[in-house]
């Protein structure tokens, strides 16, 4: 396997244009033996089947349900676009939820993600105690709902919380979690706290796959460390950037557990996923209405995914 040696060192992402097996695509099925095809059928078929049956099927069913007024028990009645009309016009939590989801996206994308990248880069440079740093910074990621809720109460409670005690404001306490103009920022802080560690781990794994000689080569070129990073390392991290970008979007749109643990996502902490939960999961069982909210969420998500798709297609063509 000597071919490896010749080409690494330049750009590991793209194979050389002149490389031999370009036209593989045209030769199609002939390059696969019968055993190959059997392996492919089983090991590709199974995940596809699972994904279609347990994710996409139910998703499409939800879309259909969003046009009904089903309560989960009796007959299903058609409602046309009634749920959507009610949602946009008369559901006071809807627009705040949309706003909060966007805030979430901004906070994760503009604060937590760059911060996680920064931490990853610092740790990747081989500082001592790096495992300690990795571990502590990752700790918030492993927390479950119950812990997050408790910690929020612990730190931010108006009467008994540590923050008001620390600020010496027991006599004029700040209502961190109860004031609807304030609590969203506190919760965003908590969200960033968790997201940073998450992003850091992904970038750490990614940075390990960047050839150190790339960085060294850039350093020899006389570029400053920062320039080397932005010109050489970051572009080489493109696949990781895509992953982190998509994850950030997913996390922002799916955000749920922190606000739910704090106050069930009410009083300023509305999020779309919480509204879906309120209507679908709980005793309420407004399946049709809840599904309509879900469809809105789905459409927003698809907006992002199509953007990503287009970019990927372009990237593919360039190869």
């Amino acid at each position: 396997m000597t071919t490896v040696n010749r080409t690494t060192g330049t750009r590991p992402v793209n194979p050389p244009k002149a490389g031999p097996p370009r036209p593989a695509r045209r030769r199609g099925p002939r390059r696969h033996t019968r055993r190959d095809i059997a392996v492919l059928c089983v090991l590709l078929g199974l995940p596809i089947l699972l994904d279609l049956a347990l994710v996409w099927g139910p998703t499409l069913a939800s879309v259909a349900l969003s046009f009904t007024t089903w309560d989960g028990v009796g007959d299903i009645e058609w409602a046309g676009f009634g749920n959507y009309a009610d949602l946009f016009a008369d559901y006071p939590q809807f627009w705040p939820a949309v706003r909060n989801n966007l805030l979430w996206l901004a906070a994760l994308g503009l604060l937590a993600t760059p911060f996680g990248l920064l931490l990853a880069v610092l740790i990747d440079r081989g500082v001592r105690f790096s495992r300690f740093y990795q571990s502590t910074l990752y700790m918030p990621v492993v927390l479950s709902l119950a812990v997050v809720g408790f910690i929020a109460q612990l730190v931010l409670s108006r009467d008994q919380g540590a923050l008001n005690a620390l600020l010496g404001r027991q006599d004029d306490p700040v209502d961190w979690l109860g004031d609807p103009d304030l609590n969203i920022w506190m919760v965003l802080l908590a969200a960033c706290w968790r997201h940073t560690g998450y992003v850091m781990i992904l970038y750490l794994a990614g940075l390990k796959s960047v050839d150190p000689e790339l960085k060294e080569a850039a350093a020899i070129d006389g570029a400053s460390e920062r320039q080397a990073f932005f010109r050489v390392v970051l572009p080489a991290l493109r696949p990781v950037n895509v992953i982190v970008g998509v994850i950030t979007v997913i996390e922002a749109l799916r955000a749920f557990d922190i606000v739910y643990a704090v106050n069930k996502g009410r009083n300023g902490l509305e999020l779309l996923s919480v509204l879906v939960t309120d209507n679908i999961i709980g005793e309420a069982s407004r399946i049709g209405f809840g599904s309509a909210i879900a469809v809105v969420l789905l459409l927003v998500s698809l907006g992002f995914i199509i953007t990503y798709l287009v970019q990927e297609l372009r990237g593919e063509q360039r190869r």
Partner: peptide, 13 residues
């Protein structure tokens, strides 16, 4: 004041 940020337990305390 600030009832929306207080649990009933804290209120009872």
């Amino acid at each position: 004041k600030g009832a929306n940020g207080r649990t009933w337990q804290e209120a009872a305390q």
